[in-house]
Design a protein around this nucleic acid. Structure first.
Length: 266
DNA sequence: ATGGTTGCTCCGCAA
């Protein structure tokens, strides 16, 4: 079974490219982030025609997450906890998570808040959101240590110095701050491992390149998209790739798809 | 040449 995550940065602007990528990547489950549309605007039929069941959660032109699966899509939820932090006035739980049982794996497509700046209210919100995710993730494994759970998506955190092209450039910025990295470590300590890094080690291995400043051709990126797996899921991982090719050319998302191969017999 | 983006929606904001 092939499981992938991809921040597509608008599913409508990139539909042809997403369909083409699905076709050649042969994924069974694809988690999308930043679909940038409401449910009624999501091109559900195009993915159904490609053979996938669809769960989308979008409330506005911002955020938006989806799961596509051709190995079953059951028990869909848009809240990983009853206490997912809300943001704004009025406070709203944003469209940043959708989970479902796909082929025996509980998959969560996650779009972690950006944070914007260390003194921005979005930064505190980001840390709260991550802490609630950690709490929820830990509780699932406390209930069932053998659960196959995948927390996948755009975490908007570069956990290690080598996950950015020049750590000095990010001094005082989000994505690399110690509280964010501690929040990410909290997920690891709860039992979820980075299933991709062993197969795609750094330095210089990234999943995102800013559109500006010619970051992609200069190979100046960030590793901020992850497939975190529970122990039972980790045991099934036989390989992983970051599809850097997909970042090339006209009309590319600023993020590359991240793919994990799972042993079907485990 | 010292810059060089994209998507949404409406001309600013978010990333």
């Amino acid at each position: 079974m092939r499981l992938a995550t991809w921040n597509v940065n608008s599913v409508r602007a990139r539909l042809d490219r997403v369909l083409a990528w699905i076709d050649r990547s042969d994924v069974d489950v694809l988690a999308l982030q930043e679909t940038k549309c409401k449910d009624e605007q999501f091109p559900e039929q195009a993915f159904r025609d490609a053979g996938y069941e669809v769960a989308h959660h979008g409330l506005s032109q911002w955020n938006g997450v989806a799961l596509l699966s051709r190995v079953g899509l059951e028990d869909v939820s848009t809240r990983f906890s009853p206490d997912v932090p809300a943001f704004g006035d009025p406070a709203v739980v944003e469209a940043r998570a959708v989970g479902a049982l796909c082929g025996g794996v509980r998959v969560w497509s996650l779009y972690v808040p950006n944070g914007r700046g260390l003194d921005d209210p979005h930064y505190a919100y980001k840390l709260l959101w991550l802490e609630e995710l950690r709490r929820a993730g830990a509780s699932w494994l406390a209930q069932d240590p053998g659960a196959q759970v995948a927390l996948v998506g755009d975490f908007n955190i570069a956990p290690q110095d080598e996950d950015v092209w020049d750590v000095d450039v990010f001094a005082g910025a989000t994505h690399v701050s110690e509280p964010e990295r501690a929040a990410f470590r909290g997920l690891l300590e709860a039992g979820y491992a980075d299933t991709v890094r062993p197969f795609a080690p750094g330095p210089g291995t990234y999943t995102y390149w800013d559109y500006t400043q010619l970051r992609f051709p200069k190979r100046q990126g960030m590793r901020i998209d992850f497939v975190l797996g529970s122990p039972a899921l980790q045991a099934r991982v036989t390989g992983a790739t970051i599809d850097r090719e997909e970042r090339k050319g006209k009309g590319a998302s600023d993020h590359a798809p991240v793919v994990v191969e799972l042993d079907p017999n485990a």
